Simulated assay, not measured.
Amino acid sequence: MKYSTCVCFSWSLLTVAVIPVSLGEMYTSLLNVKQAFSVERKLIDYLKTYIDHESERLEDVKR
């Protein structure tokens, strides 16, 4: 009985110590992914603008 109580207490203590750290890391990870998506969206927009400008230049050269 003593052994199982000690194991249960140790497991509870370990769980309480680890969960907040892992939740913080998950939040930071999700935040990094959101920032990466934001940067990717800007790059895609810049690329579309560049392609549009180059297409216009190409049309001018064709004329």
Rank of each mutant, 00 (worst) to 15 (best):
M1E: 14
M1P: 12
M1R: 01
K2T: 13
K2R: 10
Y3I: 11
S4Q: 08
T5W: 00
C6I: 12
C8H: 06
F9D: 13
F9H: 07
F9V: 11
S10L: 15
S10R: 03
W11G: 07
S12R: 07
S12M: 14
T15L: 15
T15Y: 13
V16D: 05
A17W: 11
A17N: 05
A17Q: 11
A17M: 15
A17G: 10
V18G: 00
V18W: 01
I19F: 11
I19C: 08
I19S: 06
I19W: 08
P20Q: 07
P20R: 02
P20L: 08
V21F: 13
V21P: 07
S22K: 02
S22D: 06
S22L: 14
L23E: 11
L23D: 09
L23G: 06
G24M: 13
G24S: 12
G24E: 15
G24C: 14
E25M: 07
E25K: 01
E25D: 10
E25L: 14
M26P: 00
M26C: 10
Y27Q: 13
Y27C: 10
Y27V: 15
Y27I: 15
S29R: 04
S29G: 15
S29L: 14
S29Q: 14
L30H: 13
L30G: 10
L31H: 04
L31V: 04
N32L: 14
N32R: 08
N32G: 10
N32V: 10
V33P: 01
V33W: 10
K34Q: 08
K34N: 09
K34H: 06
Q35T: 04
Q35W: 06
Q35V: 06
Q35I: 09
Q35R: 05
A36P: 00
A36T: 05
A36I: 01
F37A: 09
F37C: 12
F37H: 13
F37N: 15
F37G: 08
S38I: 02
S38G: 09
E40L: 14
E40C: 06
E40D: 13
R41Q: 15
R41W: 14
R41C: 09
K42I: 15
L43G: 00
L43M: 05
L43E: 06
I44Y: 06
D45P: 00
Y46S: 03
Y46M: 02
Y46W: 03
L47S: 12
L47A: 11
K48S: 12
K48V: 13
K48C: 07
K48W: 12
T49C: 05
Y50R: 05
Y50K: 05
I51G: 01
I51E: 05
I51F: 04
I51P: 01
I51C: 00
D52H: 02
D52S: 02
D52G: 02
D52Q: 02
E54K: 03
E54L: 05
S55D: 09
S55E: 08
S55Y: 01
E56D: 10
E56A: 03
E56P: 00
R57F: 06
R57C: 04
L58E: 09
L58I: 03
L58H: 02
L58N: 03
E59S: 01
D60C: 01
D60R: 00
D60S: 00
D60P: 00
V61R: 03
V61L: 15
K62S: 04
K62E: 09
K62N: 05
K62I: 12
R63E: 11
R63S: 08
R63L: 09
R63T: 04
